[in-house]
Amino acid sequence: MARILVAALVTLLITGCASNVVTDYNSAAVFGNYSTWAFMPDTGETSFISLDGSRVQNAVERELNIKSMRKVAEPEADLLVSWRIVEEDRLEQSGVGVGLGFGTGNFGWGISSPPPVREVKEGKLVVELVDTSSKEVVWRASSRRYLNEQQSPEKRGKLIDEVVAEMFTKYPPDLD
């Protein structure tokens, strides 16, 4: 019994330490050369920033300020920050299945129905830093936590703040 409890605790600890973001970077980039940044100009059809877009931009700006990077006009920037919320569809089971069975001795029959399933649209945040001189992505982070339509504005804002903060704990990358 003690072994099972210890194994369960170790599994819980390892799972709790799993990162909520995934990062990638160009190992040839010299991250110490970057000191200024700007948001990449939006090339979409809309001329406004969505509610989540404003939340993302505020969080990115806060995190880059913590890194002592200075926000400047686009032509003067070392890095351009690009971000997007990638929509993904996920199937979600809700409730429980129902089953019925009968039988005698070693023989029986059963029938069951699976739990109801519905499609949920979720958004995964992706942030990229682009070197302005080479026009190449030098750092990328994506979230493993998702925004969905059922979240309140407060919960969405808190989630975006947490995810962006965790992303930038991995910037600049540890090049050991």
Rank of each mutant, 00 (worst) to 15 (best):
L12N: 01
R140D: 04
V163M: 01
S143Q: 08
T15P: 02
T169V: 15
N20W: 10
R90F: 14
V81L: 04
F31P: 03
P41M: 13
K135C: 08
V30S: 13
K124G: 04
E166P: 03
R90L: 08
T169D: 12
R145W: 13
K135D: 13
E63D: 02
A165Q: 10
I111A: 06
P41D: 11
V163C: 00
M69W: 08
S54A: 02
E128R: 05
V10I: 07
T15W: 13
V127F: 02
K170E: 10
R90D: 05
P115A: 15
V117E: 11
G110S: 10
V21Q: 00
K124S: 14
L64W: 05
P114V: 15
N106T: 01
T36E: 04
A141T: 02
K158S: 06
R70G: 05
Q151Y: 04
V130D: 08
S19R: 12
T11W: 14
Q57F: 05
V21L: 02
L175Y: 05
L100M: 08
S47Q: 11
S27E: 12
R62F: 10
S35Y: 12
V72D: 03
S142E: 15
G99K: 00
N20A: 03
V117I: 11
N65W: 07
P116C: 12
K135E: 14
G53S: 12
R70D: 03
Y25T: 04
S133Q: 13
E166D: 06
V126E: 04
R144I: 06
V72M: 01
V10K: 05
L129D: 01
V10T: 07
S112E: 04
P115C: 08
S112R: 06
P172W: 14
V127D: 00
S35V: 07
R140F: 06
E74Q: 04
E154Y: 10
L175P: 01
S68C: 08
R70E: 12
S35L: 09
S35C: 09
W139M: 10
K67D: 03
T46C: 11
L80G: 02
D24C: 11
W83I: 05
G157A: 12
T11K: 08
E87H: 15
A73Q: 04
R156W: 08
V130I: 13
A7Q: 01
R90C: 03
E136N: 15
I160T: 00
P172A: 13
S27Q: 14
V56C: 02
K124C: 06
E122M: 15
T104W: 13
K135N: 12
W83Y: 15
A28R: 14
V30W: 12
G110I: 01
V6S: 06
M1F: 14
K71G: 03
A38C: 12
G53H: 08
D42C: 03
P115V: 15
E92N: 06
A8T: 09
V98W: 09
W37F: 01
G99D: 00
S152W: 09
L64F: 10
G110K: 02
R3K: 07
C17N: 07
I160W: 02
P75C: 13
G97H: 02
Q57M: 12
Q93H: 15
L12H: 05
G123Q: 04
V163S: 00
F39R: 04
E92T: 14
Q93G: 15
G103W: 15
V98H: 05
S54W: 04
N58F: 07
S35M: 10
I160P: 00
N65A: 12
F107N: 00
N26Y: 07
N58I: 09
E119Q: 13
L147W: 03
T104I: 11
G103N: 14
R118W: 13
